[in-house]
Structures are given as C-alpha cells and as structure tokens.
Design a protein around this nucleic acid. Structure first.
Ligand code: SF4
Ligand code: SF4
Lengths: 145, 145
DNA sequence: CATATTTAAGAGTATTAATTCTTAATTAAC
DNA sequence: GTTAATTAAGAATTAATACTCTTAAATATG
C-alpha cells in the first residue's frame, strides 16, 4: 500500500529531523541532514528545492548556508508538505480508478473510500511539524532506524 | 494517493462486472468483460490468471469457455482479491518508510497510520463481492463511466 | 581576488509498474 | 480431423518513479 511517494517520505523525515534538532545557526545544511538520516544528498536537495519553491523552506547558498523553515514549525502542517510534493490533486483519486468520477452515481466503494480519505486528510491538516518534533524530543517516538 | 495498483483496480472491477451480470452460461469470457469495461484484454487475462492460480477463479479453455468464481460471491471478500494481487505483505508498510520498523519505538505517525490501516483492512475483510454486486443491481451505484 | 562551501538546475541512469505482443495449449462443434 | 474460440505463459515494450551525476551560481572567509 503506497500512500506516499519516496519523495514525500524523505521530505517529511528530513523536516522532522530539523525540528527535532534545534541547531545553533539559522540554516542547517542538507549535507548534515542526509548524513544523519542516511539519505541521498542529491535526492534530498531536489526535494528541498521543491519545498523552497513552494514557500515552505528558505534556502541560503554558501558557507554556513543551508535551508530553514519559512514559518514556525507549529504553522507547518503535514498536509502542506504532502500537497507540495505529491501535487494539489493528491486527494482527487478513486480507489477503483473509475474514469470521470464524481459526476453521476458513485461507484460501489465510494462511501467507504470517501471516509478514509477524510480521515487521512483531517489528520494531515491537524498535525504540525512542531507536534511531531515534540514527541521525538520527548523520546516517545523515534526518527532513526 | 495510490492505494491499489492498476492490477487490483482492474481485477476488482472485472469481478464486480461478473457478479452484477448473472450470465446464462457457467463461464464468462474475458473478451466479453474487457469489451464491456473497456479494459485491455491481454492485461486482464494476466490478472485473471493470477486469480485462477490463487484459487479465486476457475478457468476453462475453448469455445464457450472463460472464467468463473471458484466460490459463491458472498464468500469472496475484497481482501482476498487485494492480497492475491498486491501480495500478502500488503499491510506491512510504513507511512514514512522507516527501515526495520515495528521493533523498537514507533515513528511519530504510527498510531495514526495503524488506525487507518485497520480501518481499511476491516472494511476489505467485511465486504463481499455479493454485497457490492447487489448495490450495482439495485442501481444505487455504478460500474461503468 | 581565490578558495571552499553550499544550494540550483536539470540531464542522465536505473528500477519498477503497466501494458502489449507472440506463441502455445485446450476444447467444442462441425 | 479441421477450424474457431478461448485461456496459459511469458517475452517485449512503454511509461512512471526513483535515484545519480554534472555543471553552474551564490556567498563567506581569508
Ligand atoms: S465513486 Fe468515489 S471511490 Fe468510487 S471511483 Fe468515484 S470517486 Fe472513486
Ligand atoms: S512506527 Fe508504524 S507507521 Fe511508523 S514507520 Fe514504523 S510501522 Fe511505519
């Protein structure tokens, strides 16, 4: 069951690393993150470029540069990251892939699927990076393997 | 959000066509189904071969041959089809793709994700082809576009 | 200014999923 | 037995995703 692409998974994990490691400087380098989380530097750079273009991150080039959250972590919701990386049409999908749906009668699994999607959406809308970062700092949950 | 592969989507739609079209003969030909649902004949043939190998369908070659449900439609649950086509490890996934999970502390989104997976699983376990077929026959829902 | 550090941009490659194609085997009917 | 209808098996192709690599641009520091 693939709900998130690798791109989103890596993006979220990297952001969670950032909020759970209150660093000294303003910017944290992508190299540090990929080293700590054992991700591909070039891949994460590409992912973060997208988040920078979408206004979720700031970036700064040069020594002691890196990336930083564009907003306080309690104002960045998981949904922002997912929609930025998966596309705004992320929830416009059909469980059974019926063509041209939503117009006439629903398909046999619509009610079920609609409910599940709403559950996922509302959770992503109501969960901030700050909330998850706190859980990591409190060591209730883990971020590494 | 890709929860089911095209394989599963086509497989389920084709089986729903079968249960909602009580045909005269014992076997229904794959060609008829793909013509009605506008699917690729060769692709559906491959999908049904898998379901035949897994014991969900019977097949019979030659004129007036085709495929048939191996069990009454009220005994075939959606979960049977999904696990047959997506693999038995379909639910062994992690929303954030953490490596080697489930051993120590959970990741920050585990509780949420676990709940969603259970909702999906229980619904797939409790929904039979017969139930959905009835809804189609009652014209409450649609099967075509 | 020279150098080192860091992100930006996008081309290139590899892997996986999806689809199509080819050939063979089975069976019914004439 | 010949033909037509049908599934079986799997190779071959295409498309999408995931990942890597190369080059350029920006910036700090000495
Ligand atoms: S009715 Fe709902 S679940 Fe079914 S195909 Fe349409 S949008 Fe998807
Ligand atoms: S804790 Fe749960 S959701 Fe998170 S990575 Fe592990 S299995 Fe997946």
């Amino acid at each position: 069951m693939k709900v998130l692409s690798q791109t989103s998974k890596y993006g979220i994990r990297a952001l969670l690393y950032m909020v759970s490691n209150p660093s000294t400087g303003e910017y944290v380098s992508i190299g540090e993150i990929t080293k700590e989380l054992n991700l591909s530097f070039h891949f994460l750079t590409k992912i973060f470029r997208e988040l920078t273009n979408k206004g979720i991150l700031y970036s700064y080039r040069g020594p002691s540069g890196g990336i930083a959250l564009a907003k306080p972590s309690d104002q960045i919701m998981l949904i922002d990251i997912v929609l930025a990386l998966e596309g705004e049409d992320y929830f416009d999908n059909c469980l059974l892939g019926f063509p041209g749906c939503g117009v006439e009668k629903p398909c046999p699994v619509h009610n079920f699927w609609k409910g599940i999607k709403e559950d996922i959406k509302s959770h992503l809308c109501n969960t901030s990076l700050a909330q998850l970062g706190e859980k990591i700092l409190a060591e209730e949950v883990r971020l590494f393997d």
